[in-house]
Design a protein around this nucleic acid. Structure first.
Lengths: 334, 334
DNA sequence: CTGAAAGCGCTAACAA
DNA sequence: TTGTTAGCGCTTTCAG
């Protein structure tokens, strides 16, 4: 059987509280006793039970990560960076995929609390505001990543989506494009709304007509983006450039263009958003707006842990700068 | 404060054991008491603490998932399917990325035990055999995924890597290729070894010369695969086809070919392995060997849970059939 | 500096 | 059918 604190205490000839103290480095301990205890700990290969210590009010050192889908490269890369920093700070991640389904999300929220996680990081486009409000009222540590909920005062880390959308559209305009399509999801994410707003603003600032028919809605999948892009590109007043709100949607545009025999970027310029691995492996490599995924993961974990450790009493909104990554999918118009 | 079983008991006018019984559906309970208790549970929004019940010997309903890197699409997709099935069975996943670093892995193994997970799924190319043996001796539930360790008798789910390698190479041979390159990682994974063995066997069976110079080793990264492919394709005795042991390595070949102005599949045929999302989005779409990722995730979770619940006393090796997915990166040789 | 003892929230005999 | 009680392994006063 796994050794307990009692086994160590007995073997070392001290009381369990002494063992507890040396393990946790609390209180003052005689040098010899400490040494003796540590020795026995080593010898018995003793590892304190996180479960038991959690029951006495300590942390579980576990954090819930709620995302739409880890198979989505953006969230996969984000998860990875969050996990990396979590490991440095001593926290593990409980992975929860919801596909943005509110019921699944609600289920997870309640499950995570039952499991006494120390905090939760949310990357889904939640609509469970009331649930979040409750958690907030209980001062349960929550942080949002890559997605804001302006109505709620929570810790949040995002890229500057408006600026990103602005940069993307401006890039296209600067290349001489005047007919610019926009492929969105369902506008459920705030991030997407900002990008879209920026798109419209850039058009306006440049005296370009906004054409309702140039903005296409999708269910966020590549297939649906392909469908939307086909529609867009087959239209007689075909745009010369497309701003896809996510790299994955940009791939759909690639597929549609290929099917129609249109060359990127000669016939149509495409810009994405996220700078996931996808952007660099498609042909031609995708010009896109990079989110500082690595830093975002790190920062959100930092914020949450500060919250957990009570080292912070104000919520923070961290908005990181996006970066335009010019590759070969955009081109000066003839 | 979160309500405890005591709050419920008091409110319902029964003892805590009665509450415990109705919560867990154990023992016989009077219909009215059950109803009353359930009512109070609802009213107080009571959720039993997993931590406390774990301390009394019950499960934590948490499983450790040790993989090299969730940002790798293959493992991302696999994680997703494991998590999905875990959710159905009532288990959560603690995500652990190790980059195949034995120290990180050892750290996680010990951490997961401290956290009293009910079992562990391992997808890394571990070398910590001794650690695994110890866990095995304690009858700690462990299952291997996408990776075998023949020396250890554990539950394992893999694709038939030998057959997959056989199908891949045979496909190339059937297209008339006689000079076939092979891009490997470091041969640390058993799966890779089998694929490589099959490659050699197919060559032999078809009376084709095996050329040492045609097999390239990489560190599993796309960049390194590109480097290796450049070397391979620049050589005077350039192969007409390449079998890349992973889709990601195949992408490296694409990049090298592009750099050298070689057309796929006209100048060089490429076949990958895994059938991740990458295979379908590159241009041309990659012919590859599909692993039944979804089923693998499901099966490994099933096996592990059976083990955890003691419903199984023999270890199982499940070898699933691969499938050749012909797309456009392979072509009959002129 | 160290030990005794009272919990943390829940389960599982054992009684009643 | 229901209640009482002794832990599970650990932390934390409170004494000494």
């Amino acid at each position: 059987m796994k050794p307990t604190i009692y086994d160590v205490a007995k073997e070392a000839g001290v009381s369990i509280s002494t063992v507890s103290r040396v393990i946790n480095n609390t209180g003052r301990i005689g040098e010899k006793t400490r040494k003796k205890v540590l020795e026995v700990v080593e010898q018995l290969n003793y590892h304190p039970s996180v479960v038991a210590s959690a029951l006495t009010g300590k942390r579980t050192c576990t954090i819930g990560l709620i995302i739409p889908d880890v198979a989505n490269p953006f969230f996969a890369e984000l998860s990875r960076s969050i996990e990396d920093h979590g490991r440095e700070l001593g926290f593990n991640l409980l992975m929860c995929n919801t596909d943005n389904n509110p019921d699944t999300e609600e289920m997870y929220l309640s499950l995570l609390k039952q499991k006494s996680v120390d905090g939760i990081i949310i990357g889904t486009t939640t609509k469970n505001y009331n649930l979040l409000r409750e958690l907030q009222k209980e001062h349960f540590p929550i942080a949002l990543i890559a997605q804001d909920i302006p109505e709620l005062m929570l810790d949040v880390v995002t890229v500057d989506d408006f600026l990103g959308g602005y940069m993307a559209t401006s890039h296209l305009v600067s290349l001489g494009h005047e007919k610019i399509g926009c492929i969105l999801g369902t506008l459920a994410r705030t991030s997407e709304k900002y990008r879209y707003q920026a798109y419209r603003q850039v058009l306006e600032e440049n005296g370009l007509d906004f054409d309702e028919d140039f903005v296409m809605h999708t269910d966020y999948s590549m297939e649906d983006s392909k469908r939307a892009a086909l529609e867009l590109l087959r239209s007689p007043k075909r745009p010369t450039a497309v701003f896809a709100n996510y790299d994955s949607l940009a791939i759909g545009v690639y597929q549609a263009a290929k099917e129609l025999g249109l060359k990127i970027p000669e016939d149509i310029s495409v810009i994405g958003f996220d700078n996931t691995i996808l952007a660099s492996i498609v042909d031609p490599p995708l010009t896109t707006i990079a989110q500082p995924i690595h830093e975002m993961g790190q920062q959100v974990m930092d914020l949450l842990v500060q919250e957990i450790e009570g080292r912070k009493n104000t919520k923070r909104r961290l908005v990181l700068p996006p970066e335009l990554i010019i590759r070969n999918s955009t081109k000066q118009i003839r």
